[in-house]
Design a protein around this nucleic acid. Structure first.
Lengths: 215, 215
DNA sequence: TAGTGTGAACGCTTTCACAGCG
DNA sequence: CGCTGTGAAAGCGTTCACACTA
């Protein structure tokens, strides 16, 4: 349903989930000194296929040159614009346990695109301390701090039991993009996009495959 | 392609990725004292639909009672068996940075299903220390320690540049299930199953959606 | 009657094949 | 000639609708 602009085609969900990968591969190629890429190479480096790459990129308009491939710099800048990589989306992390602590130090949250803007917890022993250069606030301060820091993305790294209530508060603070690490599915809220990262589930998918090997 | 046994239907990949979620929801329901669930409730609690639940569970054989729903204990034990939750799959983590450290303390790696069996790094300052009660070994010891500890699952939490080489070593040590947190797509290896967890990509999917909102 | 099990319809995703352009 | 852009075909996954049964 999402459209990049009025004249362009809609971008299917499957394509959206691959675009960031292309962006990253293009950065590596540019660092390597290349000027153009073929759909063939881009497919191999991103673990997909040449056909998928061409279909995906055709959503963004005609960016390739027949016979030569895609101009890396031009494609990168178009992708960056579409993905919002040329803007700032301040991030807040709720739940400063092991995982929240590790994510606060994640390099991706240091750059200009996803600046780490706020940290929250309910543990009085953690509130007031600084992690990765950002002070930990009490969860009750969420609405105030989030609006002051213009937080756009909320990361939930609380225990499962607290996740739903934290999501409520994030939404109340005007945040409509949530990355959820808690092992529960949050109830859907209109206008709010939730992406789940679930390590426990991934492990079971692996153990299922091992079991199926007939071992 | 995967089949649960000779007489049963094959299990589609989309179904496999949801089975662990059902297992978790069933545990919560059992703790809550329920004896049966309807596909309706199970669908709501797992964020899918009743139709999907019934289709998914029909792969495992007829486990429901028409008019009454599914017996929670019976379904749980069947799911646990299929997912391999009734066996031990020792886990090794390679790369003891922030993320590796956090994962070593992840509760899911304490239970009997995925016991934390080994930790690896190349930094001499980390080798020899213990994290979460497990000693950190040098990466060069991987093959020896992994076979001694019967490691079944390898978790890669190294920088992107090292991931490919680490995957080579894991496979050389006989490990065929890899959970990859490094921001690269590993080259496919025959007989090896890789699941990628990519926080950076998830963030960009969120920022894409924010951008599309017309802001 | 309440709720499963399932074929059939639908929609989305990938693959194929090739026309068309630099 | 090489490689993109794209319709058409094939493959998957989800939704629908309902027969069937405890």
């Amino acid at each position: 349903v999402a459209r990049t602009s009025d004249h362009d085609r809609p971008v299917p969900a499957a394509t959206v989930s691959r675009l960031p990968l292309y962006l990253r591969v293009l950065e590596a190629l540019a660092d390597g000194g290349s000027a153009t890429v073929s759909s063939d190479l881009l497919g191999e480096l991103s673990g997909t296929s040449a056909a998928i790459v061409r279909k995906d990129l055709s959503c963004l308009g005609s960016l390739g040159t027949r016979g030569a491939g895609y101009d890396i710099a031009a494609l990168h800048s178009r992708l960056a614009k579409i993905l919002g990589a040329d803007r700032a989306w301040p991030v807040a992390i709720v739940g400063m346990g092991n995982l929240g602590h590790a994510l606060a130090n994640y390099p991706g949250l240091r750059g200009p695109t996803f600046p780490l803007a706020a940290l929250f917890d309910v543990d009085p022993a953690k509130v007031g301390r600084a992690v990765a250069g950002v002070a930990v606030s009490h969860l009750d301060e969420l609405e105030r701090v989030a609006s002051k820091e213009k937080v756009a993305v909320g990361i939930v790294t609380t225990p499962a039991a607290a996740a739903e209530e934290v999501a409520n508060r994030l939404v109340a603070a005007g945040i409509r993009s949530i990355l959820n690490f808690a092992p529960v599915r949050l109830t859907p809220r209109p206008g709010v996009v939730v992406r789940d990262v679930d390590v426990g589930m991934e492990l079971f998918v692996l153990s299922f495959n091992e079991t199926m090997r007939g071992s």
